[in-house]
Computed example of a mutant assay.
Amino acid sequence: MRKVLYLLFSLALIAALTTYALWTADRPAGHYLSDLRINLAVDQGTPADQGNLLGIQPELFPTDYQNADRLHRKLAAYLQVARDQGLLSDKTVVVLPEHIGTWLMISGEKDELYQAGTLKEAMNWLAVSNPLGFIRALVSARGDNRLDDAYLRMKADTMAHDYQALFGGLAKEFGVTLVAGSIVLPEPSVSEGELKVGSGALYNSSLVFGRDGLPLGQPQRQQHPVFGQHDVLGAEHTGSTLVFDTPAGRLGILIGSDSWYPLHYRQLNEQGAQLIAVPAFVLGRNTWNEPWGGYKGLSTPSEVSLKPGEVSEGQAWHRLTLTSRPPISQAKGGVSVFLRGQFWDNGSAGQSFISHDGQHYPDGEARGARLLNLWL
C-alpha cells in the first residue's frame, strides 16, 4: 500500500511540475490598444543649421512593454510626429526619460503580470513565471534589498540586448542622436560596440546612440541615486561625468537627482559641454505639487540653501536643475524629460522643461505624451 501511495504521489508531483513548466513557457500576447498621439508642448528658438535638442515625454503603461515591437511602435509613432513637424535632422539630439529602459524587465511575460493590480503582485508573477532565473538572481543578489535586486538582475542579459536593439534601432531609423533615457543593469559597459552586463552592483545608467545606431562611448552611470533606491542601486563614485560628441555639440548627461549638484555642472564646463540632457522620473501621481522632500539622505551641497518643504517638488526641480544657468553651467541649452504613465498602483509626476539662456520653459500639462524642442 505504501508503495502504491508513493507511486501515486510521485506521478502527481511529476504531473504538477510538468504542468507548471508548460505554463511558464507559455507567453501569449494579450489584446493591445495604445494611444500613439503626442503634442508639441514647447518649441523654443528659431530653426537654424545648428540642430536642435528634442525631449520626448512619453506616456507608458505595462502593456507597452509586453514585447519590444509594441514599445518600438509607440516610440516610433512619437518620432514620426516630430519628423512630420520638421523637428528631426542629422543634427537632432533626442532625449528620453529615466527608467524607460528599466521596464524592459517585464517584457515577454505572461498576461497575469500585466493584469496585476499592484506592482508587488506583478513582481510575484515575474518570479513565479521565471523560477530558475529568479533563483539564480536571488543567490547572486547584493545589498539590503535582495528581493528587488533579484527582480532587476534576473533578466539583465535580455534587457541589455533589447535596450540596444530598440533604442539603437530608433536612432538609426530616424537618423538622430538618441539619449536612451536610463536602464538599471549590473555593471553595464560597452565592449566592441555592444552593451554588456557584469555580475557586480546594479547601476542606473544612460547610453547615447549615434545616427548609425551604435553606442557613443560608455554608459553614464548615476552618481546620486535617491534615498529610496540606496538599498538596491550602486552609486558611481569615480566622479566621472561623461561628455559625448554629437553633430549638435558636446553633450553631458545628468540622470535624475544628479542634476541637483552644482559640482557636476562645473565638471561638464571643464569638458566643454554645450548641451545637457536630464532623463528624470518622479514617483507618485501628485508628487510634483507636494512639498519637496530635500536630498533624501544624500549630502546637501554647500552651495544649496533650499530646505525641505520650502518649495514644491516641481519648484525644487526648476531651482536645482542649473542647465544653461551661467556661471555655474555654461551650456547653451538643456532639456529635462520625465517618464509619465501608470505602472500598476504606481503613478508618476514630473513636467518636462527646456532650459535656455538661464530660463526654464515648462510644459504646463500634467498628462499625455509631449514633445519639447529647443532650436540651437
Rank of each mutant, 00 (worst) to 15 (best):
G30H: 11
H31Y: 08
Y32F: 14
Y32K: 01
Y32R: 04
D35F: 04
D35M: 00
D35E: 07
L36G: 04
R37N: 15
R37G: 15
I38D: 00
I38L: 05
A41M: 09
D43K: 06
D43A: 06
Q44R: 12
Q44L: 08
G45S: 06
G45M: 05
T46I: 13
T46P: 04
P47T: 05
P47Y: 01
D49E: 14
D49R: 11
Q50H: 12
G51F: 12
G51V: 14
L53W: 00
L53H: 00
L53P: 01
L54A: 02
L54Q: 06
G55R: 03
Q57M: 14
P58C: 11
P58A: 11
P58I: 12
E59V: 10
E59N: 09
L60Y: 07
F61V: 11
F61L: 09
P62H: 00
D64R: 05
D64N: 13
Q66P: 00
Q66T: 11
D69N: 11
D69Q: 14
R70Q: 12
L71I: 15
L71F: 12
H72R: 15
R73F: 01
K74C: 08
K74N: 07
K74I: 14
L75V: 13
L75Q: 08
A77P: 04
L79G: 02
Q80W: 05
Q80Y: 07
A82K: 08
A82S: 10
R83N: 07
R83E: 09
D84F: 03
D84M: 00
Q85M: 10
Q85P: 03
Q85G: 01
G86C: 07
L87K: 07
L87N: 02
L87F: 05
L87H: 06
L87P: 00
L87D: 02
L88W: 10
L88G: 11
S89Y: 02
S89V: 03
D90E: 14
D90N: 14
T92C: 08
T92R: 06
T92F: 07
V94H: 00
V95D: 02
L96E: 01
L96P: 02
E98T: 06
E98G: 01
H99G: 04
H99E: 03
L104V: 04
L104S: 06
M105G: 11
M105H: 08
M105K: 08
M105P: 04
I106L: 02
S107Y: 03
S107D: 02
G108S: 09
K110N: 12
E112D: 08
E112H: 00
E112Y: 01
L113I: 13
Y114F: 12
Y114P: 07
Y114G: 05
G117T: 11
G117N: 12
T118Y: 09
T118V: 10
L119C: 08
L119N: 08
L119G: 06
K120S: 12
E121G: 09
E121P: 05
A122I: 07
M123L: 12
W125T: 15
A127M: 10
V128K: 13
V128C: 05
V128A: 15
V128F: 13
S129E: 14
N130Q: 13
P131M: 10
L132A: 14
L132W: 14
F134K: 03
F134Y: 15
F134Q: 01
I135S: 14
I135M: 13
I135Q: 10
A137H: 06
A137Q: 02
L138F: 15
V139A: 13
S140R: 15
A141P: 05
A141I: 06
A141N: 07
